[in-house]
Structures are given as structure tokens and as C-alpha cells.
């Protein structure tokens, strides 16, 4: 089973995302900010990360930079999932090494479409 780390400071969003990812047959781990997510990756590197941008402690972009420095950190497919829905932010995220980008609000169809684009479905 593939694994997905869901990183979002909103418990509600994490819950919704978890449900969708589990329906797509992913093993789901949750983290509430970038730092907690890095801790998770240090234990087990996931196959995918669904990543919010704006979060306390360490935001999504900082997490992404840190992740790509970790041993094996180039492997996970990172899909941003954020309310930052303008071209500049998208470009910044892709430049930083994100594989796909979801603009909130999302639904299961969008998640499915994006995860199949990164080759995980």
C-alpha cells in the first residue's frame, strides 16, 4: 500500500483529505505543521505528501525545501493543496520542487486527477 503524509494545520481539512486518500487506497499519516511533517519523514519517508502552504511553526514551502535536503527526500511526490491560488505562488512552489498543485477548495475528483498525474494512481 502506498503512503501519504497529509500536512495541514486544520483538523477538518486533514480529516477530509484522509478520507479521500484512504478511498484511493493510501495509508495516511497526518501532521499539523511543517516541522511535525519533517519529523514524520525522518522516521518513514512517505510515497506522497499532500501539503498545505500557510501553517504555524514551519510553512509548506519551508517544509518542501527541508524535505528535498533529507536523504531519500527527493523521492516523495509532493502535491501542494492551498488557498494560494495565483500563478506566482504556483510557480514558486513548482520551482521549489513540488510535483503538482491543488487550489482549494478541492474535492475527491481533483485529488484523484492530480495523484494520477504524478503517477501514483
Amino acid at each position: 500500500m502506498k503512503s501519504c503524509l497529509v500536512v495541514d494545520d486544520s483538523r477538518v481539512i486533514r480529516m477530509v483529505a484522509r478520507k479521500i486518500m484512504e478511498e484511493l487506497e493510501f495509508d495516511v499519516v497526518e501532521a499539523e505543521d511543517g516541522q511535525a511533517a519533517i519529523d514524520c519523514c525522518n522516521q518513514v519517508m512517505p510515497d506522497a505528501v499532500l501539503l498545505d502552504w500557510h501553517m504555524p511553526v514551519m510553512d509548506g514551502l519551508e517544509f518542501l525545501y527541508a524535505l528535498r535536503q533529507l536523504p531519500g527526500g527527493e523521492k516523495p511526490k509532493v502535491v501542494f493543496c492551498t488557498t494560494k491560488n495565483d500563478l506566482e505562488h504556483i510557480q514558486e512552489a513548482i520551482k521549489a520542487g513540488a510535483d503538482e498543485y491543488i487550489m482549494k477548495p478541492f474535492d475527491s475528483e481533483i485529488i484523484q486527477s492530480k495523484f494520477s498525474q504524478v503517477g501514483l494512481l
Binding site: Q91, I94, E100, Y101, I102, M103, F106, E109, I110, S113
Partner: peptide, 18 residues
């Protein structure tokens, strides 16, 4: 926003949409 997230890879959105 919903329509451009169905089937369209983000790279294509960046390249071909404003």
C-alpha cells in the same frame, strides 16, 4: 478553478493559461 484542475497537469496550466 474547478475545471482547470480536472485532467490538466499544473505544468500545462502554468504554460497555457492566464
Amino acid at each position: 478553478q474547478f475545471e482547470v484542475q480536472r485532467g490538466l497537469p499544473i505544468a500545462m496550466l502554468m504554460k497555457y493559461f492566464q
